[in-house]
């Protein structure tokens, strides 16, 4: 046994003992939650068996979690509950007496088509289902993006460059509006693909990048606060809920 292995085993022993003490004092689940929290934090040092354990457990549990949520939350009320309502009676009594809706066979069939992918011969059938999903959302997205991201942005950018308010001419707001307008224009110039960024056009694109960079820096700096809050939340869980060291 090498020295490194020995250290690993000793460390493991210590973890087991601490875990046992904590279970005795705090109960299994709180201890387990704290253990998993620490296991994930240990990734900051390096990959290690504790992180691997937490990661693999998380992957398995979460995959099943969403399967169950999808089944009880969507399949039961929206598929079975509409195909053959008496079937879901024991779970959702409110739906029991609804008329059945044969149209819901279509998604069931499409879903089964999708699963045909698992067969090597009939795999191509799954594309029909895929085409349906992609087609629906593509059509939906086309209009949605055009309206909310394109037309609406014009309407909010079309603001007066010369601002007056109750106190008369407002220099601050005027400057802000001019900067916004020029910023949007230059940003758009940057996104031109079929024109070389040269001369005046290139200058515009460069100004666009400047605005983008300031924005990225600002958003980055702004997000720090939220992330620190999350960390504080985890620390509070460890120090307070688990160890009871605060207040």
């Amino acid at each position: 046994m090498t020295r490194r292995q020995l250290a690993t085993y000793i460390f493991f022993g210590v973890v087991v003992i601490l875990f046992a003490i904590s279970v005795a004092l705090k109960g299994f689940f709180v201890t387990f939650g704290a253990f998993l929290t620490l296991a994930i934090f240990s990734f900051l040092y390096d990959d290690n068996p504790y992180y691997k354990f937490a990661e693999h457990l998380f992957v398995g549990v979460s995959a099943a979690y969403w399967m169950c949520m999808g089944f009880w939350g969507t399949m039961v009320p929206n598929l079975f509950g509409r195909l053959y309502p008496p079937m879901v009676g024991p779970v959702i009594p409110a739906l029991k007496d609804n008329p059945s809706d044969p149209f819901m066979l279509i998604p069931l069939i499409l879903g089964i088509m999708l699963l045909m992918r698992l067969s090597s011969k009939a795999g191509w059938i799954s594309r029909w289902a895929l085409a349906f999903v992609v087609g629906t959302t593509a059509g939906l997205n086309l209009v949605r993006y055009l309206r909310s991201d394109f037309i609406q942005q014009i309407s909010s950018t079309a603001m007066p460059l010369y601002v007056t308010n109750s106190a008369g001419f407002s220099l601050g707001e005027t400057i802000s509006n001019i900067v916004i307008f020029i910023g949007v224009m230059c940003g758009l110039i940057y996104f031109f693909f079929s024109k070389e960024h040269k001369g005046a056009f290139g200058a515009g694109a460069r100004a666009g990048v400047i605005v983008l960079m300031i924005t990225f820096g600002a958003s980055f700096g702004y997000t720090v606060m939220a992330r620190i809050s999350l960390l504080v939340g985890r620390m509070q869980y460890l120090l307070d809920s688990w160890l009871g060291m605060i207040g």
Partner: peptide, 19 residues
Amino acid sequence: RRIIFAFIAVAVIVPLLIG
């Protein structure tokens, strides 16, 4: 980068502990 991590951890934990 683990040194930076350690600083952040201390920065968050110590104020919590001293309240």
